[in-house]
Amino acid sequence: MWIDNYFTINRKSGIENADIYDVELNPDSEIYRGHFPGEPVSPGVCSIGMIVACASRSIGSPLEIRKISRCRFLSVISPQNRQDLRIRIELTDAILADEKQGKMYQIEASIKYKELVCLSLKGELAERPGKA
């Protein structure tokens, strides 16, 4: 899967209720072969995927997006600016959903490149579904 070599977490820290991940993009990711040829730009969904991966690490089990009430893409992220990316994640206590869906978490997250906010997201995550 694309996320496996898309980025690395260089440092994890915390401020108040939030987890902070300093991350670095891998410019050799297969994603850039197709997005776009000769003009690598990080797809918005891959930035969302990084947030989900960091949130999964915060919780300690794989999570999946269920809802996004709002996600704004404010500046383009590209592998040319692969360092100095900081992901901020705030997860609230598990919401008890029905048994089929498992545990759910509310998330507020952002991605910054240096001081520039590139993305802000508010939504809900659930434990990743298993094989049918």
């Binding site: 776009f36 003009e39 730009v41 918005g44 969904v45 999946e64 997006i65 269920r66 809802k67 996004i68 009430s69 709002r70 996600c71 704004r72 893409f73 383009v76 939504g123 579904p129 049918a132």
Partner: peptide, 18 residues
């Protein structure tokens, strides 16, 4: 032309495709 996602609102996934 290329286009980018500027904003996503009210996304809901009921079940994952397989």
């Amino acid at each position: 032309k290329t286009s980018y996602i500027g904003e996503i609102r009210d996304f809901e996934l009921v079940d994952n495709p397989r």
